[in-house]
Design a protein around this nucleic acid. Sequence first.
DNA 1: TATAGCCGCTTCAGATTCTGAAGTGGTGTG
DNA 2: CACACCACTTCAGAATCTGAAGCGGCTATA
Lengths: 106, 106
Amino acid sequence: MPPSPPLECPCPPIGVIDVVGKKWAICVITLLGSHGPQRFGPIQRSLPRVSPATLTGTLRALEREGLVQRVPAATSPRTLRNYRLTSRGMALYRHLLPLASWLRQA
Amino acid sequence: MPPSPPLECPCPPIGVIDVVGKKWAICVITLLGSHGPQRFGPIQRSLPRVSPATLTGTLRALEREGLVQRVPAATSPRTLRNYRLTSRGMALYRHLLPLASWLRQA
DNA sequence: TATAGCCGCTTCAGATTCTGAAGTGGTGTG
DNA sequence: CACACCACTTCAGAATCTGAAGCGGCTATA
């Protein structure tokens, strides 16, 4: 008897999930979705135990996937930048809300 | 001016998310949710590039969180065991469905 | 009973990734 | 100019993951 064929996984295990299927990416997306655009510092302070190197990598990966973009921070006199969700990122955020609420009450 | 206080993250960045916020855990939960209880081998064959060590670790962590349980595989003459979602695991599965559908069409 | 094979892991080395402390560079302020 | 602030970058050590290999329990067949 041949081994049973692979089942189709509802979550394709390669591709975007390599970016999104990480806790810091999930946290960043839901944070930006619920609190609006933020700068690097506040994001870092809101996510205890994330190292700046990992946060930079996470943000760059989300940018590459077109989920987040950097925009000038209008409120600041400095040339600082906010990270904000793109419309694709907003769509993902909405699809993450059920998971986020489950995680909160879990 | 003191640094802005941390924002409340909708996804608490410690706790269950350390188990659930990984791609293999997401894949296992959605796989078991959509295809019913499965044994180790079929799960492994359905998730390309997961190593047996990582899959074992993922399943044990999900078991510890009460999301998955091992039950005797009734259909098999062997003393093999299926992994199946608990009711808590089923609840998580339902909250993961929107994410899974976004990932599929992303 | 002997034996061969499947299955569910476990072990291991090497590669990748993460943490947290420290440092760098660019920009605005006094 | 001196200084502070912020967004990173660098680095070493720790943790985690991959993929190949092997082990032990069980079953089917002889």
